[in-house]
Amino acid sequence: MEIVANDVNVQLIGEPLAVGDPLPHFKVFNADNSKVKMAELTGRPLVISVVPDLNTPVCSAQTRKFNLEADQHSDIRFITISKNTPAEQADWCAAEGVKNLTVLSDEEESFGYATKLLIPDLDVLARAVYIMDAQGTVVYRQIVANIGDEPDYAGAIAALAQFQQ
């Protein structure tokens, strides 16, 4: 799949997950540098916000927005995944006051390869939003066509309505 980054077309390593696909196996790391496996993220609905680099304005805005949404949906797990190191992520969360969602590091690229969101030429993940049901099946997918743009928050938030009781 091709997207735009800095006005240049770049390739992802393959075709990212589609609606109906199961969440593949991967491992990421939390702020304590402890391994988190895909299986630990299922069991309740999950929003995966994927950002290229937390230390950029658009990625910061995206993560803060989903942090606010997490406060409104206590029955849904919200995570942000980037290739920033766990230490960088912990520093960013502390500086931004982000506490309602979990920020996870894909510095080993396990998530990027498993989901096909890695952009090898830039060594970052593509900007994306996935929503999974409790069984780990994709029910919503948004791959942002231009890495510098914010995602369609309204579309993602509307997709959460299916989990309201």
Rank of each mutant, 00 (worst) to 15 (best):
K35M: 11
T80I: 00
I81N: 09
K116I: 02
G14P: 03
P86L: 13
V4A: 00
T137S: 14
I131H: 12
P16W: 00
A5S: 08
D75E: 14
T80E: 13
A145D: 13
L68E: 13
G43K: 12
H73D: 03
K27H: 13
T115P: 09
Y140L: 01
V98F: 02
R44M: 14
S110I: 10
A128L: 07
N6K: 00
K65F: 14
A87V: 10
I143Q: 05
G148S: 11
S82R: 06
D53G: 04
T56D: 12
T56W: 02
Y153D: 12
V139S: 15
E88C: 08
L122E: 03
V103K: 05
G43A: 10
P16K: 01
V51D: 08
K116E: 05
C59R: 03
A94C: 00
A31R: 06
D152K: 09
N55F: 15
C93V: 07
D106I: 04
L46H: 14
D71L: 12
T63R: 07
E88F: 00
R141Q: 15
P151R: 06
A145R: 13
S34T: 01
D123P: 03
E15S: 10
N9H: 00
V138N: 07
I131Y: 10
E88T: 07
I119R: 03
S74H: 12
N33A: 05
V103T: 13
T115G: 02
D106H: 11
A87P: 03
Q162R: 15
Q72F: 07
R77G: 08
L54P: 09
E109H: 09
R64G: 01
S105W: 08
P52Q: 11
L41A: 10
D123L: 07
T42A: 09
E40D: 10
I81K: 05
I119Q: 02
S105F: 08
I81R: 06
L125R: 11
V129A: 04
V98N: 12
P86H: 01
G97P: 14
I13D: 03
A5F: 08
A114L: 11
V50C: 04
V8E: 09
T115L: 08
D32M: 01
Q165C: 07
F66R: 02
L41R: 13
C93M: 08
Y113R: 15
M1V: 00
P120R: 02
V58F: 06
D91S: 09
D53P: 11
Q89L: 12
D71M: 08
D152Q: 09
A5G: 02
P57G: 06
T63M: 06
M132Q: 11
A126N: 04
L117N: 05
V129E: 07
S49V: 08
A145W: 08
E108C: 02
L101P: 05
P22V: 15
A70K: 03
A18G: 09
G43S: 13
V139Y: 14
F26W: 04
D71K: 15
I119P: 06
L17E: 07
L118G: 01
Y113H: 12
K35A: 12
D91R: 07
M1S: 05
A134I: 11
N30Q: 01
D106F: 07
C59S: 15
E40Q: 09
M132D: 11
K65I: 03
P16M: 00
K99E: 12
E108H: 14
D106Q: 06
P24Y: 08
P120Y: 02
I76N: 12
